[in-house]
C-alpha cells in the first residue's frame, strides 16, 4: 500500500479550488477565440471579447473569473493501492475546500439546508464522486459549478422507442428553453443510459472532457457533432442576445441500461467552464 497523508490532499485541493476559479483552461479559451472569429452578431462579438478579456484579468490572480465560484464538485480516481491516513478522503477534500475558498477570496455559495437556507460560510460540503482504479495514484478533479447553469439541467426518462431522435430532440429543446439563463456560450453534457441517478452523473462527467474532444465511439461522436450544429442554429447566441455561438461543444457519455428504459440527462455548463486536476 502507498500511504498519502490527508494533509497533502487538503493542500492540493485548496490549490485546485483557487486555480480552477482564476485560470480558464486553454481549450475553453481557444474555442472562445474560434467562436469570436466566426460570430456574425456584433453584440455577440462584443460579448465574446468581454469574456476573453475577463479570462485575462482573472489570470492576474486578484478577481475570480466569475463571482459565482460554484458548488465544489469533485471526481476522484482512487488507486486501489492507496491508503489515505489521518482522515477519510472525503474529510480531507472538505477541509481543502474550506481552505481554498477562504484563502482564494472565493464566494461561499452553499446553504446548510435546502429549505432553511443558512449559509455554511466556507462553501462546504462539496459533492465528491469516488471511483476506484488500479494502481497507487490518486487523481482529483474539481469542477466548480455555478447555480445559473446548473439550474438549467434536466433528467428525462424517455421510452426506448423514442430512440436517438428522441434523445436529440430533448437535448436541443432543453437548450432552447434554457435560453439566456446559463450564460451562453455553454458546454452541453449529455448522459444516456444507466438509471435515474447514473444518467445525471454521466451528463456531469461529460462536462469534464476537453472542448473539441469527441466520443471514441463513432456513432456518438457523430451525435455530438449533429447536436452542436442543431444547437448553434437556435440563434440564442452569446448571453442569449442572438448569434451563432450558443454552445462551444456537446459531450455525450453513455452506459448500459434496462430493457424498459432510456434515461437521458442534460447538464449545462456556462462558459466559465472550470475544471482542474491533480495527480498525487
Amino acid at each position: 500500500m502507498r500511504e498519502i497523508a490527508a494533509q497533502t490532499i487538503t493542500d492540493q485541493v485548496a490549490k485546485l479550488c483557487i486555480d480552477a476559479n482564476y485560470f480558464l483552461g486553454k481549450d475553453v479559451l481557444d474555442s472562445l477565440n474560434a467562436a469570436l472569429a466566426k460570430e456574425e452578431s456584433p453584440t455577440g462579438k462584443a460579448i465574446l471579447e468581454q469574456i476573453i478579456e475577463n479570462a485575462g484579468i482573472a489570470q492576474e490572480g486578484e478577481f475570480p473569473m466569475c463571482q459565482d465560484t460554484g458548488f465544489s464538485v469533485f471526481f476522484v480516481e482512487l488507486g486501489q493501492e492507496v491508503l489515505v491516513t489521518g482522515k477519510t478522503l472525503e474529510e480531507a477534500i472538505t477541509e481543502g475546500v474550506r481552505k481554498g475558498y477562504g484563502e482564494g477570496y472565493l464566494r461561499k455559495s452553499i446553504v446548510s439546508d435546502p429549505l432553511q437556507r443558512v449559509n455554511t460560510k466556507d462553501n462546504t460540503p462539496p459533492v465528491v464522486w469516488i471511483e476506484t482504479v488500479p494502481g497507487s495514484e490518486l487523481k482529483i478533479t474539481i469542477a466548480p459549478k455555478g447555480g445559473g447553469s446548473e439550474n438549467m439541467s434536466e433528467v428525462n426518462m424517455l421510452n426506448p422507442s423514442d430512440g436517438a431522435e428522441g434523445v436529440k430532440n430533448f437535448v436541443v429543446d432543453k437548450v432552447r428553453r434554457a435560453g439566456s439563463n446559463p450564460c451562453p456560450p455553454i458546454v452541453v453534457g449529455v448522459g444516456i443510459g444507466g438509471t435515474f441517478e447514473k444518467v445525471a452523473w454521466l451528463a456531469k462527467k461529460a462536462l469534464l472532457r476537453p472542448i473539441g474532444d469527441r466520443n471514441p465511439n463513432p456513432f456518438y461522436a457523430a451525435m455530438e457533432e449533429e447536436l452542436l450544429e442543431r444547437i448553434n442554429k437556435l440563434g440564442i447566441g452569446p448571453q442569449g442576445l442572438g448569434g451563432r455561438t450558443t454552445a462551444l461543444d456537446v459531450h455525450v457519455e453513455v452506459y448500459p441500461c434496462h430493457i424498459a428504459s432510456l434515461p437521458s440527462a442534460v447538464n449545462i455548463q456556462c462558459h466559465a467552464c472550470r475544471h482542474k486536476s491533480v495527480v498525487i
Binding site: I47, F63, C66, C183
Partner: peptide
Amino acid sequence: MVAVGGAAALIAK
C-alpha cells in the same frame, strides 16, 4: 440592461 454573465472580473474593474 444586462451585463455579461461571467465577465465578473472585468466588471469589477
